[in-house]
Design a protein around this nucleic acid. Structure first.
Lengths: 348, 348
DNA sequence: CAGACTCGCGGAAACGTTTACAGCTTGAGG
DNA sequence: CCTCAAGCTGTAAACGTTTCCGCGAGTCTG
């Protein structure tokens, strides 16, 4: 005669009922022992033994349902292959993992409907929190974020009054650092290869570039500005267009991928770096150090921003009543071979 | 007088009870409407309206508990920053996302206890399946994988009889392709910068290198072999050690990061690439094309392997009874500037 | 030695959803 | 007019866990 109810899950795996029955105690006691709460030595021994014998492992979903926690943290970025996001992701993963949680990644392709849909989906609480680094921010983003039942942290520029935790840098100032450095080392015709102007970083960097030149009293020759995409191939193409119409003595690029593309364009065109043209990238990713010559780059602290965002998120998960906070990571300039001063030449 | 039970979740968000109460129907009917099952027009209208009004979104965890599916797929690799894993991850993410699931990433650091712990943790079913690409495979890995209640797919070499879905390439043959190419273009003193020999890829590439030289009747000068780590810095250091003791006319590197390090070492040492020394990497990552000169590299189809692994996993999730399968991606060689033949020189 | 207090335990409810089952209504066919 | 099938609906159980609460036994205190 077969018992109908064997205390096992549908797939035959042991549940807390299996363990309790085997140990001869109630499921409440079994659960308490397995969670290290109070119980007599004898009960502890019996439950531990029973759990061991049947190879019991608690079901994560059932536990989540009870605790209202999934132990997951989401991360949404445009492209998980871009080195700047790779560094952020690595830093975030480390923080998240050390808190015993896990990271769920989303590649949005910078597609706005995808991003807002993702934020809206937070309503079903499949993660305990979310870090998002949108390249463009719309009103839809903001409403979706504020309506989300789980905390959201934004990496990137956000309106001053948005009630959302925010980690940012100041890429405008970062561009200024690079321009100052190039001018200090004797460069005057500084070209600028930017990403799309309708993105938050693209706009900020454009503004920063113009402001920095103005600060030095240099009038901008618009032929020195070119716009592409934040990718290698587009950066290379943009640099080629720029070089085909004018002769800069320095090139500032809106990120390292563009800078690598520009380096390629320069070397392929027979220009020497840094002798003929100095080159500076942005984001200071590992890529910058891998190139030959090594690339100067404006660090926007991507790993640091990732770390801070993860910290902020974990703190808010722990205490949702916290006021919205804002962290700012200052840009710094890493000077390397690609923008070394020209050895005493005929200039200036 | 306050109602004790408001049909809302602890945090005040609406549940299916809220919607049902508001629509004046049972939770069963509400659930049916929300899942598009049979119901009368009137019921459908009322439930839809009620759900809309209260902004109902089903709770993902509760749904998971019922369906025994989390909608998550795990991926465990050594380092989510290594370009070869970045490409795999990108391909996997695309497949997984298009099936309506999401990707949970784990960076194991190549640490064996971390990896086996991760595999054992699958017992709690926090994901529907897992893709793992271990750099070393132990018996512990295998038992943890076969005991897992959720399917596991391995990217990498696995014993012939392991009853686990497996996607592999043949890096031994891949190394052979590179050696053949270098010899065909007139190189004879081929150096080899490898990763650790106690890793699966390290061992395979070492064997492949020796076999290829033997096939061409070349006796290996052990000074031409150097071992480091699969990283940029270690690769550069290893290449420097090799170059300081002997003069190769070609350098084959066990992955692209090492190759970039070697390129650095060569250029810093004043050697011209490819004129003095030809250079070939492995994995054919985006990095290879970003260097100047562009790097020849043996493609091991990382994106393709990722795609296949994800397909295999999704198929097995859909039908766990499938027999274990094995997919093999053949290596191919991408010849680029770094290994162009020497322009008719004095040699051979 | 009586009362209060502590401790361990088991029963049952809860988390929010889906779904098996049974009862009801309605309409068609004989 | 009766029977039967078909279609909706609601009740309740289930998924596997944690936890509230009440109970009994033991211990301490005055």
């Amino acid at each position: 005669m077969v018992r109908k109810r064997l205390h096992n899950a549908a797939d035959g795996r042991p549940t807390v009922h299996t363990v309790a029955a085997r140990a001869g105690v109630s499921i409440a006691s079994a659960s308490r022992v397995l969670n290290g709460l109070g119980a007599s030595d004898e009960t502890i021994r019996k439950v531990r033994a029973a759990a061991e014998e049947v190879g019991y492992v608690p079901n994560a979903i059932a536990r989540s349902l009870q605790s209202q926690r999934t132990g997951l943290v989401g991360l949404a970025v445009e492209d998980i292959g871009n080195p700047v996001y790779v560094e952020m992701m690595r830093a975030i993963e480390a923080v998240v993992a050390s808190s015993g949680r896990q990271l769920v990644v989303h590649a949005t392709g910078g597609h706005i409907p995808t991003e807002t849909a993702l934020l809206r989906r937070l309503a079903n609480r499949y993660v305990d929190g979310m870090i998002v680094s949108p390249i463009r921010i719309t009103g839809d983003h903001l409403t979706a974020m504020t309506e989300s039942p789980v905390p959201v942290v934004v990496i990137g520029q956000l309106g001053e009054d948005a009630p959302v935790d925010n980690v940012r840098t100041d890429s405008r100032t970062g561009v200024g650092l690079a321009v100052d450095h190039l001018i200090a080392t004797g460069r005057r015709r500084i070209g600028f290869v930017n990403g799309p102007l309708d993105t938050v970083p693209g706009a900020a960097r454009d503004a920063g570039f113009r402001a920095a030149l103005a600060r030095h009293g240099i009038e901008l020759d618009e032929r020195l500005v070119e716009v592409g995409d934040f990718q290698y191939a587009a950066g290379r193409a943009a640099a080629e267009r720029l070089l085909s119409r004018t002769r800069p003595d320095a090139l500032l690029c809106a990120n390292d991928l563009i800078a690598v593309g520009a380096l390629h364009a320069l070397l392929a065109g027979g220009r020497r770096v840094p002798d003929d043209v100095a080159l500076v990238g942005m984001d200071d990713t590992e890529l910058a150090q891998m190139m030959f010559p090594q690339l100067s780059s404006v660090s926007l602290g991507s790993a640091e921003r990732g770390r801070l965002a993860a910290d902020l998120l974990l703190q808010r998960i722990a205490d949702p009543a916290l006021p919205p906070r804002r962290e700012q990571v200052p840009p710094t300039l890493s000077v390397r071979a690609s923008s070394a001063p020209v050895a005493a030449g005929p200039g200036a």
